[in-house]
Each structure stands twice: as C-alpha cells, then as structure tokens.
Design a binder for these strands. Structure first.
Length: 924
RNA sequence: GCGGCAUUGGCGGAAUUGGUAGACGCGCCAGACUUAGGAUCUGGUUCCUCACGGAGUGAAAGUUCGAGUCUUUUAUGCCGCACCA
C-alpha cells in the first residue's frame, strides 16, 4: 500500500481536534511541564519554512514529555500589536485590526497543517481587550509601586506615603500637585522628561533596543535625540537582580553574556571635585562636581575634566568669556543626530573657562565639554587621564593637554596604555603598588577622607514606555491639572477608540483624532504602549487564559509556576527577555506570581536563511542583454567580470539547474533569453530542446525574502511531501541552535525513509521478536531518548533510518517491535506514527501511550574474553567480538605496545576490540 | 576594542565520558529493472597512489598509551555589545 500522507495527515488532525486530545487541564495528578514558543507577530507575508523550526523542536519535546507522563502546557498565541499593521493602515486606510486578524487566520491555518500539539483553547492575542486588560492592569500596579532600595523589592507606594506622613513634616505642607510630583520620582511606571530616540518617519519614540546604529530596527529610518515627556518603566532599579538572577537560569552562556553586557555592571568610585570659577573661591561645597570612574588609582594623572554637553554642570561652570563659544558648541551637538554622532568620531570639544581642583594634588585642572562623554551614564562628567584612556588620549592630543604616565614602563608617546597592569609611578602614596592594589587602596582612601565613595554603575537604562502610535494598548491614565492619575481597576479594559485617521495630526498622537477620548470629563492619555508591553507577561496568561478576575489565578500559577522550556530567536536577548524578566520580578515582589524568574530553560533556535539562485547576464562587448551564461563558465576569461548576477526564482531551479522554459515564461524581460550552457554550447547555435542541455545557476545564502525570490512556504512542502516529512527534514537540517540555509534538495531522502518505513507495517505478525530485532529497537530507544533530552533532534533522524534499514533487512513485521517504533516516532512525525500505531491493531491515540524504556541487556553484543600475556605474565583480559581469532588478539597487543604497557600498569577491567584496533577501555 | 560561538569530504552534517573520524542524507559514479521517468532497488564514493601503502578534522605546539574532542598560541568566519570612563 502506498504512503498516502495527505490522507493520513488530514484524518489524524481532524481526529485529534474532534477528540480534544491536546486540551490541557490545570487539574492533574501528573507532574507538570510548560513548553513555550516565543509567540509570533503575524506579518502579512505569512510563515516561511524558517518560522516552524523552533515550533517543531518544542513540539517534539512537548510530545515526548507527554509520553513520559507529564501534563504538558504547550500553547500558542499572537503578538498582534505592532508597527507594520499600523503602517499598512496609514497607507491604505484599512483598520489594523482587520489586517491583523486576517494574518492571524492565515498563520493558524499554516500552523495547523504542520500538526502541532497546541491547546488552541488557550490561544491569546495581545490586541484582544480581554488580554490587554491585564497589560493595563500591570501598568496600574507599576504606577502604584516604588522600588525600595533597602529590600531591593517593589512595594506599594502607599507605604512610602505613610512613611513620609509619619517622618517627614514637609510632606503635609506640600500641595497635591507637589506631592504627586515628588511621588513621580519613585513610581516604577513614571512620567518624566527624558532624552528619547525620536523617529520622525515613524512619528514615535523608540526604546534603546528598537534602535540600532542610529536607525530604527523596524523600517530603518533615522532616529534623533529629543527631550520629551514620556512614560518610563524603572527597569534600572532591577539591574542588580536581573544580573544575579542569570546565575540561576539554564540559558546558554552566550545569551547570559549578552544580557550581562546589556546590564553593564561596573564597579568604580564617585569622586567629588571642587570647582573654581570666576564667581567662587572654592572654599565651600557650593560648586563641586561629582564624577564616576573605574580607575580611581589614576587620579594623579588627571590633566583635564570633561562634561557631557547635556550635563547640568555645564551652565554652572561656564565663564562669561567662554559662554559664546560654549553655546555654539552645545547648539551644534544638539542638532546632530545620533547617527551622525556615531559616524563622525572626530574629536570635538570646548573649554568652559573654569578649573577643577584635584582633591589629592590640589592642582588646577581645566574643565572641557565634549560629546564623547555621555550624559546618561555615571554622572555625565569624567576625570580625564590621557595616559591611560584612549579616548582621553585622543582629546588631549587634539587640544594639546599634558599627558602624565602613571605606570612604570608604559610608553604613552604614541597611544595610551589602557591595561590594568604594572607598577604605579608619579602617584604619591600609590607609587610602587600594582594597579589592582592601587585601585583598592584608592577606594579606601577616598571613602575614609570623604572625597568620594565606592559606587556600582549600570549601563541598563529605564525603558521608555510611550509610543505616539495608534495600534497599541491605551494607557489607563487620565490627566487632572496636568498630573496623571490611573483609572480604577474595575474600569478596565480601557478600549482602544476608533479613529478616522491612523496618522497623528498637528503634532498629536493618533489617539488625538478619537472623539470624546475622556474619562469623567478629564482627558485621557494620547500615547499607547510599546510592543513589548503585551509580550512581557503573556506566558502567565496561558496558564489561565479565560480568567476575568485576575491575570492568572493563584492556583493556576502555583500549578504551572514558570516556563520550563522556552524557545525563540536570540534577537530578543536584550529586549523581550529583559522586559519579561523585569515584569515578572515586579509581579513577584507584589505577590502575584510565585516564581522570581519566568523562563527556567531557554534555547535559541538558529535562523533559517534562504538559498538564492542566480543567472548571469552577459554585459560584455556586444551584449544584447539577452544572453545568460551558465555558472560554471563565468570565471572563464571571455566572461570574467562581464556578467551580472540576477536573482531567479528558486521555483524554476532544481538542483541548481535552471528550467529554461519556465525561466522564459517567468517574466516578460526573459521571454527571448538565450543561453550558454554548461558544456559551452549556445542555445542559438544548437537549437534548444528541453532537457538536452543543462544551464547551471549560482547560489548564495541570504535572508529569506520576497525580493530575493528565495522564500519557501511550508504549505507547499506539506502539499508535496507531507507535514511529517517537513518536520523531520527541518530537524535533519542541522543542530537546532545553529543558523543554516534552507535547501529543499535533500528532502527526498527523508521522504523516502518514511515511505520505506511505511512498508514495514504490512502483514503485521504476532511472533516473538528475535535478539537482533530487539537490539535494533532498544538501540533506537536509547538514542532517541538521549537525543530529545539533550535537544539533539538532528541526530535522531539518521537513527530512525538505520533502525528502519536493519528491521527491513531482518524482514521484521512483528507487532511488539513496530508498536514501540511508532511511539518513538510520535514526537517527530505524529501523523504517520498514529497511523502506524493504528495499523498495529490499536484503537487508542499514540499520544496516550507510554514512552518505551531501554533495556540495556539487549544491547550487549556477543563477546568472548581472552587473557593476555604481557612480559610473560597474564596481566589483563581483553574482551572482543566472538569470532576474533586468538592470534589476531595477540598481534593486536604487540602492535599497540605502548597502549599494552599502559594497560598492564593500570587496573583495566575490559577492553573492547575491533579487528586491528583497541577502541574502548573500561577502567576497573 | 570587549565578549560569545564556530572551522571536519563536492555539500548539509555525525562522532553523547578522550577510544574504529567521515555515521545519515544530498550530490556524483556504476549496475539492475523498465512502458526511458525528476520512479524503485543494489553496489561504490575523504585525499594521494595502478597497487602495496601513506596522509588526514583551518595552522602550530603541548598533555596522553591514545586527541576532531583537553591546554596554549595563531588564522579565518559569524553573532552580540561598544566613545559606558
């Protein structure tokens, strides 16, 4: 009987759905396990074969865990707020909800065809009011909380108010507005004037992780710096906990390292420098500036100070003579976009006219302003040590400032010496110390003398949480006397209003276009929340998706606790995975969730790139623009550098051979195309007939994209080969975590395997399995179990193939063997596994079966033991295959004399041997 | 610049605890069957050599009875961060 995959797959998908075999209950005696995929943004292009890679891997793991007796939560949903749908809406006037829902429908139909074991009853969509109610709810909690630095935990802000009422007499004298303003400095969700990444093209601000090299990640539009009043989340308060929490997570080192980098902890010291200006005489603290440094030991080499242009110190220290020059410089900095600043790293700066006093040497040091110092990090002011910092060095060279070497033997005539090693010189009481010790000594010195204090700085900034966009969660916030207040929780969800026009007008965000956007007559917030708002707690919602009383009930949360296995791309390392951890820790502090970290184990699947094909158009002398050269010839002198590669649809290329007729029909400009074939003959001369000559295309690995004509749609693969073949082949491509190009060419091999496997399930017999058959099966059980537990899915497919080959060679059609084979296949290829299980005479679903146990006893090969004489005495025993002749063993020992000597001197229990070689030594 | 990961046939990649390097698949070669097909099956396929034999996991050194695997140095590629003081 033929392997009719489309019939099998359709039948079983319908049966699973009808019987609800993948519906998950929160009440179960079984141990729980939560497997989650990062939910997708439903883009208009639909899924390509790269998307399901991680989904297949997590599905295999889920199905395996189920067979192992776990109650497995494995849901899917959609991150459905976002810029592309809104950009499309602005262009076409279509409501983003309409296009979003259409895209979701398409995604669901594509996903269903691949046979995932999702519990679709638990699907969530971030743009669904029932869902974003809880996004808004979380925001209100953040607004009403502050971060207590003593306990390192979020607390209700009422506690802070009570404390002030009791201990701070000034509090009661403040007006309501003043009180609100003071509280705003503590709230975890707060409104502040901050320097933001403003993207004029998108008409919105962006978070740091949404900007790369001065361009927006979405769209690639220029981004400029601007000060705006924005909602922010006090993520930086959690910097230390986010850093320390990493140690307890089962994530890859590279991902942890990326997060550590992003959090950017650095230990150093803050130091106070008094400032001498035209107005002050330095006696008082009145004019001083605080700087942050990790190299307090280099203070004897400070030859100038530098302020960031935006530093609050600037206006205090600038002298009248320098004012004009300084203002000109500040203006120039302000007008530079982030991108220009990054692109142009020439040294610029201006002298303020004032001097700082070195607290150790009492020397006067000039204060400069330069944009190489960042306002957002440390205190926005630095002490410059040109001898030992390359940036200070460049500045000193440009402005001809002195450079004092502080480390013995350091040559600073050409460049700075940045390394933290060597003996200190020119450094007063630090002279002779190693750098490491000097840093420590200096820290103690400044603490004791009160010049400064030890300080830990983090690079992680607060997240800017406002977006001047339409397609996002509205803030549950209204304004009274210009101060924000949150809506009562029972008013949630605050529904996204309808608007006529999706683009903002008159500098107002799009919600400004909504009619009657007020609460009790007070204006509501016009901004919406960013994309990461909805994706920061969605994994909690899956635990209890229909609850309208809470984000997640206590019982549901305490049953599932946290995501046991999370799969997704590494591109979310500094965005989603930081925000989610922050969000979760916040909810944990307030007692809404029972785990401090959301994702226990995390795996990044690699990206699947496209494999583009090219034809080469002849553009040399006498070119008609109509002649194409086979790839194998383009390096020939007559064509070299005279051809132009043109992307060609991979649908008309098979194994790098172009389908000539399909190419001519593909686009009008290729209608009269002529070719020089692989053998050097030309189509004009020979008169082309299909199949007679080969035209070879070039190829390249690129992003999968419509513009490269290299997109492969999983639907097409499913139709041609079936979902099981797709699943197996995606895993077979290579290690899960590695990036790799998609190449449909190899898929036949996997498909052939399924067809051959299918043949084993004819004429099933109820005979007792032989030893060889049992060995094949148990080898397979051992291998597949190990593979799944170690996420080494790619190596399972060869194991299945080998087992299939062995069983075919043994002509094995025995029920006892084939039943278990079906169960082993179930995680990888669930449809054919169900059918195989069924053909063995079972009526149950394979998903309800038990994972087979490996019996090691079946794996032992027949061996025999030889005592080996060495130096005349019996020294050890060699165990080798039964038919190995004794002379062979003796010859072997002599041939491996060094090894034998070593063995004789050690307590060796067993040696496994194959002809000619000792291969495995078991120590006693 | 800092950090992480990788490098094995024509190609994707195996080698799980240091123990037969190249599993399995693609491609290619030969053969069988055949209604000539992009079907199926069988055998071969790391390189050099007619062969015997030798070499071999980016390069160099080291540890070990034994190294693709461990250590050091180095080269190349990919990814992340980056005037972060």
């Amino acid at each position: 009987m033929e392997y009719n995959f489309s019939d099998i797959e359709k039948r079983w998908q319908e049966a699973w759905e009808k019987e609800g075999v993948y519906t998950v209950s929160n009440e179960s005696d079984k141990p729980h396990f939560y497997v989650l995929d990062m939910f997708p943004y439903p883009s208009g292009a639909g899924l390509h074969v790269g998307h399901p890679l991680g989904y297949i891997a997590s599905d295999i793991y889920s199905r395996y865990k189920r067979l192992k007796g776990f109650n497995v939560l494995h849901p899917m949903g959609f991150d459905s707020y976002g810029l592309p749908a809104e950009q499309y809406a602005i262009q076409t006037g279509q409501h983003p909800e309409k296009t979003t829902f259409e895209n979701i429908d398409r995604y669901i139909s594509q996903l269903r065809k691949i046979g995932f074991c999702y519990d679709w009853n638990r699907e969530v969509r971030t743009c669904d009011p029932k869902f974003y109610k809880w996004t808004q709810w979380a925001f209100i909690q953040m607004f009403n909380s502050y971060f207590d630095p003593k306990t390192q935990k979020a607390q209700p802000i009422s506690k802070l108010i009570a404390e002030w009422e009791a201990n701070d007499p000034k509090w009661a004298t403040l007006s309501e507005r003043e009180q609100q303003e003071r509280l705003m400095n503590y709230r975890i969700a707060y409104l502040a004037d901050t320097k933001v990444n403003w993207c004029p093209e998108l008409g919105t601000v962006l978070a740091n992780d949404e900007v790369s090299e001065g361009l927006s990640v979405r769209g690639g539009f220029p981004v400029e710096q601007r000060v705006m009043r924005q909602w922010c989340l006090r993520v930086s308060a959690y910097a230390n906990r986010l850093l320390e929490g990493l140690d307890r997570l089962d994530w890859t080192d590279s991902l942890k390292e990326t997060q550590r980098n992003w959090i950017g902890r650095s230990e150093g010291a803050e130091m106070k420098f008094l400032v001498k200006t035209q107005k002050s005489k330095v006696e008082s603290d009145e004019l001083s500036m605080t700087i942050f440094t990790t190299r307090a030991d280099t203070i004897y080499g400070v030859t100038f100070m530098v302020l960031a242009p935006e530093s609050e110190y600037v206006q205090k220290v600038v002298t009248d003579e320098q004012r004009e020059e300084v203002e000109a410089y500040l203006k120039r900095c302000k007008n530079r976009t982030e991108r220009e600043r990054i692109a142009d790293r020439r040294v610029t700066g201006v002298f303020t006219g004032s001097y700082a006093i070195n607290p150790l040497t009492q020397g006067e040091i000039p204060i400069y302003i330069s944009d190489y110092v960042l306002a957002g990090y440390g205190t926005g002011a630095i002490m410059a040590v040109p001898a030992h910092d390359s940036r200070d060095y460049a500045f000193a060279r440009h402005f001809n400032l002195p450079i004092i070497p502080l480390i013995e033997g350091a040559d600073v005539s050409e460049e700075s010496f940045d390394a933290k090693e060597g003996k200190m010189i020119n450094s007063g009481f630090l002279n002779g110390m190693e750098v490491k010790d000097a840093i420590q000594a200096m820290k103690e010195y400044i603490t004791n003398t009160g010049i400064g204090r030890v300080k830990v700085n983090y690079r992680l900034r607060d997240a800017i949480f406002s977006r001047q966009r339409y397609w996002g969660e509205p803030f549950p916030v209204y304004y009274k006397d210009g101060m924000p207040y949150t809506l009562p929780e029972e008013e949630l969800p605050l529904l996204l209003p309808e608007v006529e026009e999706f683009k903002g007008v008159n500098g107002q965000p799009p919600l400004g276009n909504a009619k009657d956007w007020t609460y009790n007559g007070y204006p509501l917030e016009l901004c919406t929340m960013p994309g990461f708002a909805g994706s920061s707690a969605y994994y909690l919602r899956y635990m209890d998706p229909h609850n309208d009383q809470a984000l997640v009930s206590k019982q549901a949360n305490e049953y599932w606790r946290q995501v046991d296995l999370y799969l997704g791309g590494s591109e979310h390392a500094t965005g989603h995975l930081i925000y989610s951890r922050f969000w979760n820790k916040f909810l944990y502090d307030l007692g809404y969730v029972c785990e401090d970290e959301p994702f226990r184990k995390l795996i990044n699947q690699g990206m699947i790139q496209g494999r583009s094909s090219f034809v080469y158009r002849y553009v040399g002398e006498g070119a008609t623009g109509n002649l194409y050269i086979s790839y194998n010839l383009i390096e020939n002198p007559e064509y070299k550098d005279k051809v132009q590669p043109i992307h060609v649809s991979i649908n008309i290329v098979n194994n790098d051979v172009l389908d000539i007729n399909a190419f001519r029909a593909w686009m009008p400009q290729f209608k009269n195309a002529e070719f020089v074939f692989a053998d050097g003959t030309s189509s004009e001369l020979t008169g082309y007939t299909a199949g007679a000559k080969q035209f070879i295309c070039g190829c390249a690995v690129e992003k999968m994209s419509k513009t490269f004509f290299n997109v492969v749609n999983p639907d097409d693969i499913v139709e041609q080969f079936g979902a099981d073949t797709l699943r197996l082949y995606e895993m077979f491509l290579g290690p899960l975590e590695m990036s790799k190009p998609w190449d449909t060419n190899g898929i036949d091999g996997v498909h052939r395997f399924l067809k051959r496997l299918w043949n084993l399930y004819e004429n099933i017999e109820d005979l007792e399995p032989t030893k060889d058959e049992l060995r094949s099966l148990h080898k397979l059980i051992k291998k597949i179990t190990w593979d799944i537990e170690n996420f080494s899915f790619n190596t399972s497919i060869p194991a299945f193939m080998i087992a299939q080959n062995e069983l075919t060679a043994l002509k094995c059609h025995k029920r006892a063997i084939l039943e278990q084979f079906a169960v082993l296949m179930a995680p990888y290829a669930p449809h054919i596994a169900e059918e195989m299980w069924h053909r063995c005479g079972n009526t149950s679903f394979v998903v309800n079966e038990e994972w087979p146990e490996c019996n090691e006893a079946y794996l032992v090969e027949d061996t025999q033991k030889y005592p080996v004489q060495f130096n005349g005495k019996v020294r050890f025993t060699i165990e080798c295959p039964k038919d190995t002749p004794k002379e062979e063993v003796e010859k072997l020992v002599l041939a491996n004399e060094d090894t034998a000597k070593y063995l004789a001197g050690n307590a060796v229990k067993k040696i496994i041997v194959v002809p000619g070689r000792i291969v495995n030594i078991v120590m006693g």
